[in-house]
Nucleic acid binder design. Structure first.
Lengths: 125, 125, 125, 125
DNA sequence: GTGGTCTAGACCACG
DNA sequence: GTGGTCTAGACCACC
């Protein structure tokens, strides 16, 4: 499992971890049933506390993306509940605003979105 | 200045305020030189603490979007410092990941992005 | 013995097994003296670890619902020790609280309880 | 805020706290907008760690029962999302099974449920 | 003042 | 082995 955390990122570590795993799932790199590394293993790999990873896994579990069982680790599940559209659009709006302020044209932004969507699924089996 | 804060939004209030002002600037509704309401005035309008608005203005100032002068209020400036590409792309990636997990197709996402970009500049003078 | 375990159920497997057997006993489908499958047999049927079933049987034994003898399997017994009222009421309270928060009226809840009690004994010989 | 935790209860402390607050909300003793004690205050009152209470509050927040904001504490909100019926019935079934095994008759159980529903709303303004 | 996050370390529950 | 919970204490973010 290749994950990287960035200390300069303003998101808390547990969320960075959860978000990266979400990307792997969204991109098809982690399919339903795929096992995730153990909390201890991943904590050791990333050099963070065990509880930090446990919090990340708990968030993913609450969103229905993984199933965690006591003696047998965590596996990817298909998402059962879907978020409402409104909740999904707010972060998109914020991200697009920053791009516009960054000087990108409408065309450049659409190209960037297209590129990012490709990257997301790049290398999926 | 029409701003609305949403208590159910998970972002802190100061960031909601900063983000909304950013959208107005990005959409051309607030152009260079346009005056912003005073910290005191805006705090009163929104019914929030003075420090909350001050923090929002400080963030905008740090990003080079507004200039704050003692005694003469704040005005919109053209952005001087450009963020690096990586910083701009990370929130976009997170937003797109959620859309993919929400079940939207590539085409639907591109349409949504297009719509949001239109909304951003809707009504700009 | 028809038992089903649900991976998406938050209860540990051993408790799901114990709870299902309890329902069979409470509903009269397993009467005093009825033999239970061996730990090995049930573990095999359900595809779970031997220890998991052993833990379930131990819990049932601790509550006086079954008697386990080396070499001769387990049989249902009449319960000898009665739990105190407080211990029985706490899970009921929690369950009712969730129903109320779920928006069910008092009448709807009483109907639901009645239905569940019927289901419990449905098909008992 | 009168809350009690029971060390002999098998539920973790954070869940006991969350469940008790849920009962107060379900019973109308804590209405929409009512402020909850601060994390530190409640932790001190109950003699448990600050993080334990924070976990309880986070669970309530995730269920949409309270809104927690950084500088201004937690307040009760109306629940927005409703759980599905299946999830609500499983704990009820388990609770009823224990009552049947405890020797209570159908009539006694219905009376007990009725009593508990009364207790839940007892004393609500 | 408020809550949020992280650490180190302990002990328990589960399979 | 696995994850879950709790503690004590630290530091940060928000209002």
């Amino acid at each position: 499992m290749l994950l990287r955390i960035d200390p300069s990122d303003r998101r808390p570590i547990y969320r960075q971890v959860a978000d990266e795993i979400k990307m792997l799932i969204a991109g098809g790199k982690l399919r339903e049933g795929a096992p995730l590394p153990s909390v201890r293993q991943l904590a050791s790999d990333l050099g963070v506390n065990l509880n930090t990873i446990a919090t990340a896994y708990r968030e993913l579990q609450d969103e229905g993306l993984i199933a965690v069982r006591h003696g047998s680790g965590a596996v990817v599940t298909s998402r059962t509940s879907q978020s409402s559209g409104a909740e999904l659009r707010q972060p998109l709006r914020t991200a697009l605003t920053e791009l516009v302020l960054g000087g990108l044209s409408r065309r450049e932004i659409l190209n960037l979105v297209s590129t990012e969507l490709n990257d997301l699924t790049k290398g999926a089996k």
